[in-house]
Amino acid sequence: MKSMKALSLFSGIGGIDLACEWAGIETVAFCEREPFPQQVLKKHWPHVPIYDDVCTLTKERLEADGIGTIDLIHGGYPCQPYSLYGEREGAEDDRALWPEVCRLIETIRPSWFLGENVIGHVTLGLDETLSDLGNLGYTAQPFDIPAVSVGALDERRRVFIIAYSNSEQWETPSIFPRLNTKGSPKAPKIWSEFQFYNGGANDFLFRKEDESLLCRADDGVPRELDEPRFKALGNAVNPYQVFPFLAGIKQIDNMMKEMQK
């Protein structure tokens, strides 16, 4: 069966991309401008190209670089405009980059979109996001999933937006099959015993599989090196939070492709 391919925006250290990998979705390109997360991405996905500016990324540039059909665009677009702990300027904030995400969705026309943001987005900006997706011909649904629901030590509430292109919907909704969760992809067992640190399920990205987690309060790492790591962890998407959505997307996409044969 044809593999499902994803474009990763605001990739950070690859939390969503790790969950994609677990679900059987291939990341074909990253877009991340921060140097430290770029190093992490290069370490774990050395053959995947990294673009450094979502504002200059275009469908034409991706195609020129040999990146073909994209089935899924995903990303946690900047949360500062919507955060309950910020100025909450929404679209007036210079860091509000949803319009760039919307532009890429409109030109690339993926079957799926998955967005992530802080819970403050629910009361500021989410209506516009859902309206924009609707105007582009996508049916979208937001979900409020806290990290504590997947075993993290902190609440870390996040809103996830799942959108699917109306042009690819089933003509007869009654034939929508029941999802079979038996044998669905699962996170590798090695991570099932992972101890969450500060809500950062991506901490393992900074170590090898045979290394133990370090106590960040006194781990011998110079502070100037530890600070970008803390920042990256704070911005990272917990892969356990987003994995169920991606596993469901992959399963539905597989069924859609089977029905189109």
Rank of each mutant, 00 (worst) to 15 (best):
M1Y: 00
K2Y: 01
M4S: 05
M4C: 08
K5V: 07
S8E: 07
S11F: 04
G12P: 07
G12Q: 08
I13N: 09
G14L: 11
G15V: 08
L18Q: 10
E21V: 03
A23L: 01
G24Y: 02
G24R: 07
G24S: 10
A29P: 10
A29D: 11
C31D: 02
E32S: 11
E34S: 09
H44V: 05
W45R: 13
V48M: 05
V54P: 02
T58F: 09
T58N: 12
K59V: 05
E60D: 15
L62G: 13
G66K: 10
I67N: 02
G68K: 14
G68C: 10
I73L: 05
G76S: 07
C79S: 06
P81Q: 11
P81M: 06
P81Y: 07
G86S: 15
E89M: 08
G90K: 02
A91T: 05
E92Q: 14
E92L: 13
D94G: 04
R95V: 07
R95H: 09
A96V: 00
L97G: 12
L97F: 13
V101L: 08
C102M: 03
E106T: 14
T107R: 05
T107I: 08
R109K: 14
F113G: 10
F113A: 15
G115T: 13
I119E: 09
L124K: 03
L124F: 00
L124V: 01
L130M: 12
S131T: 15
G137I: 11
G137T: 14
P142C: 13
I145K: 03
G151F: 01
R156G: 08
F160R: 04
F160P: 00
I161M: 12
Y164I: 09
E168K: 15
W170C: 03
P173I: 03
S174M: 07
F176I: 14
L179Y: 10
K182W: 04
I190F: 02
S192M: 05
S192Y: 00
S192K: 10
F194T: 06
Q195A: 15
Q195D: 12
F196K: 00
F196L: 01
F196W: 03
N198G: 15
N198H: 14
D203P: 00
D203I: 03
L205S: 03
K208C: 07
K208A: 10
L214C: 06
C215R: 08
G220M: 06
V221R: 14
E227A: 15
F230T: 12
F230V: 14
L233D: 00
A236S: 15
V237S: 03
V237A: 03
F245K: 07
L246V: 06
L246E: 09
A247V: 09
K250A: 15
Q251F: 00
N254G: 08
M255I: 12
E258Q: 08
M259K: 06
Q260P: 00
Q260V: 10
